[in-house]
Design a protein around this nucleic acid. Structure first.
Lengths: 212, 212
DNA sequence: GTGCGATGTATCGGTCCGATACATCGCGGC
DNA sequence: GCCGCGATGTATCGGACCGATACATCGCAC
């Protein structure tokens, strides 16, 4: 998952580790907390060893030789390689069970702008199926085992069930959107986040903005 | 977290691993998928080594000696020890940062029936604070970085923000409940799970039902 | 009688996290 | 002028947990 996320972000622009972590937090803030450095740096090394990314040396212009002795380590900027882009395309299109868990789905969804429509549909439907299963499980417990559980546990289940129902509805709308060809507007669902405009995904191809 | 969950469940009745996993799935189904055996069995061993749990031999009555050669391994039933109960009480009352993440909060909440009111309140408020922070983070991204992100990523954030707002409201109600002394009714929030009755937690002490 | 799904215990490699360490940079306060 | 301190930045280590896999038994339908 981390591998996919890093490759996806580096496709938008070269970055160093710290920056990657921040961008990741911004892009996936709805899904999970910031990634740990204990995962990030080893993964960067792994990706580099595999040839998916390379170091892009800092300060390309004046590289004067400050002899040695605390030699200014400086930050390490990574950029994606051609092979890395292929790898990303492969990872983003291939769906396994882990594609539908919370984190996996979140990461895939965050890169939907770089995903073809058929794959988007497949992922949304897989996710819906998974959430529906969870929902049924909760309904069962609530209906069949309620007397075995205390009021707090019950309340937890009830809250979880409601979240499932809500997510299924959300997914239904997204799926309907995808099916109807060029994505129309998602109806206003709530007050969340102030003014809500359009929901029209960009044509699947390019990055929308190079960094300054 | 697993340690806490196991200790909590074994407090209700002795169980073997397989059973533990199923009960855990029922109790925490709203929070997370079933626990992996790759975590469960090593943890059981660790708890046993620490003296928090012990093996309670199966088939206590007729223990005839089937000599050897495929000697019927049979299931291993664990029960909690007095030290284990102390350990549970300590774990349930002590709150760290991990108490407020999704899994940590879920496990603590699931054992609220065995938690004193002051601790319940502390945990609910800590969780609320954490979700409020996540909410503010999402609002910031949505307000300040919206133009940098594609429509799908934005939609993900928006959905996440809505979930945060909803959870904060849920927590508010639970907190109000706790504060008002003996827990009153939580108002009907939605249609989830059919008929919704009372929400009155049992007196904090004992298990409500021994297994048959 | 036999195959098969549920029950049951167990291990292994891999991913990711949280704590920790350490170094530099810019800036405000004294 | 300089000192501290928060943000920036790279890095490692132990531990928690997962997913795949293996293997054995039980009950029951065919």
């Amino acid at each position: 998952m981390l591998e996919l996320a890093i490759l996806g972000l580096l496709q938008e622009s070269p970055m160093h580790g710290y920056e990657l972590r921040k961008e990741l937090a911004a892009k996936l803030g709805a899904i999970r907390a910031a990634i740990s450095y204990g995962s990030l740096y080893p993964t960067l090394r792994r990706l580099q060893a595999a040839g998916w990314i390379t170091e892009a040396a800092e300060t390309p212009a004046t590289a004067e030789e400050v002899p040695a002795l605390t030699s200014r380590r400086g930050r390490v900027v990574y950029k994606i390689t051609a092979e890395g882009k292929e790898r990303f395309a492969q990872l983003i299109a291939q769906t396994g069970p882990e594609t539908y868990d919370d984190t996996g789905f979140g990461v895939h969804f965050a890169f939907f702008a770089r995903t073809d429509q058929a794959t988007r549909l497949r992922i949304l439907e897989g996710r819906r199926r998974k959430i529906e299963e969870r929902r049924e499980g909760l309904r069962d417990v609530l209906a069949r085992a309620a007397e075995r559980l205390d009021a707090y546990t019950l309340e937890l289940q009830r809250h979880g069930l409601e979240a499932c129902e809500r997510e299924v509805r959300w997914l239904e709308e997204l799926i309907a959107n995808e099916r109807s060809g060029r994505a129309p507007t998602v109806p206003q669902l709530g007050t969340a986040g102030g003014r809500r405009e359009e929901f029209s995904p960009p044509p699947t191809g390019e990055s929308r903005k190079e960094r300054p």
